[in-house]
């Protein structure tokens, strides 16, 4: 499952969570989990001010096709000046865990192919 901006949705993607008006997660859903997106449905959601949706799999790769290893490598690069510092390393560890979890839950990019 991946949360993506409505602008990046495409026909054929499958909703992984109910969609609510104004992204509010309360009230009556305007579109149910499991629905396959179509052009007209996307337009309708846009008119209803829906900003983002949860879709199945991991169909959108923000910076080209990135694997978990690539992302962890980038993370290492970003933290290269501060790994000696214990407080900042806490944040590093949190991000490692976060990336592993968010990239791992659907089996990474193999499923997207």
């Amino acid at each position: 499952m991946q949360k993506i901006p409505l602008m990046l949705t495409k026909e054929g993607m499958v909703l992984a969570r109910d969609v609510f008006r104004n992204d509010s997660a309360t009230g009556i859903p305007i579109c149910g989990k499991g629905t396959v997106l179509t052009e007209s449905l996307i337009t309708r959601l846009d008119h209803m001010d829906v900003q983002s949706v949860y879709v199945s799999g991991h169909p959108v790769w923000a910076d080209g096709d990135r694997s978990l290893e690539d992302m962890l490598q980038d993370l290492d690069r970003r933290f290269e000046k501060v790994r000696h510092d214990s407080l900042t390393t806490k944040l590093y560890d949190i991000y490692v865990k976060y990336l592993k979890r968010s990239m791992g839950d659907d089996g990474g990019r193999r499923e997207a192919e």
């Binding site: 980038d74 993370l75 690069r77 970003r78 933290f79 290269e80 000046k81 501060v82 510092d85 407080l87 900042t88 944040l91 590093y92 991000y95």
Partner: peptide, 15 residues
């Protein structure tokens, strides 16, 4: 740390 956006350098500052 999250790598969102681009502020000119990519190095995470020390907390």
């Amino acid at each position: 740390a999250s790598g969102f956006g681009n502020s000119g350098d990519y190095f995470v500052p020390q907390i």
